[in-house]
Amino acid sequence: MPSRDKSITDMPKKRSTFLLSVLCFGMAFLYIPMFLLIVYSFNYSKIVSVWGGLSTRWYISLFESEEIWSALMLSLKIAIVNATFATLFGTLAGLALARFRHFRGRTLFTGMISAPLVMPEVITGLSLLLLFITLGDLIGWPEKRGITTITIAHITFSLAYVAVIIESRLSGIGETLEEAALDLGAKPLRVMMDITLPLLAPGMLAGWLLAFTLSLDDLVIASFVSGPGSSTLPMLIYSRVKLGLKPDINALATMIILAVAMGVLIAGWILIRQQKQRERDAQLAGAK
């Protein structure tokens, strides 16, 4: 018997060393490159891969670089406008998918909404480029490609993601709450404002953030539909890589990592607070 007791107490310990090493390996794999990037952003040397002592000169040069700032601002502008419109249209599409069961062309609509999710980006980009050129020739709009065409292109594919999020959120909520509001005398538009939209708000926020990220991240489609003088940040970084990397890109990347880390920390903090609130509510419900 003692030997069995021992094996029981030993088991979790052994497993935990194994798990711990796997965890460390995975974490290292994911985060060492980023760590190196941060370290090298403080590198004095002009050559990215050679260490030349500590310095913040690339941060200074970053803040002085007109080109990078304007690219960043352009990317943010496009991302915000894109996210807003994609959320608007995506929500409408999601509502149509989840709440209108029978309408002519429903299957076609469903397929067309989800097509951008699986379509290779090069094809989306190329087809949009052709569309813009044809339109420009036929009706004179868009005159030239730039911020407008990139934004339109981004909206077309990110609204598909928003529509999927909204649809699944709507099926999760179910129709009973809307029926209950109807039953209590609210007309359909009123039900939308009072019940559907408030309950959909978290889904819409998630959709907005996803569309924002997708836009900020996109290189391929933007490359197709952008014009002279309208380089987004990913396009700028990519062209820099081709021309030979300057360490100020490391500094920029470090700043982006910092921003993302802050975002994740804040989100985590909010989640923990909500969790605690839920536990308190559950206790309250059980108390009486």
Partner: peptide
């Protein structure tokens, strides 16, 4: 449905989760 002199109590109760008890009852 919204104009019928009928009210329903749903199996799942269908209380509006974002409203207080008071607001739920006052809604109609």
């Amino acid at each position: 449905a919204y104009a019928r002199p009928v009210n329903m109590m749903f199996q799942s109760y269908a209380l509006f989760p974002h409203m207080s008890v008071e607001d739920n009852v006052a809604y109609g």
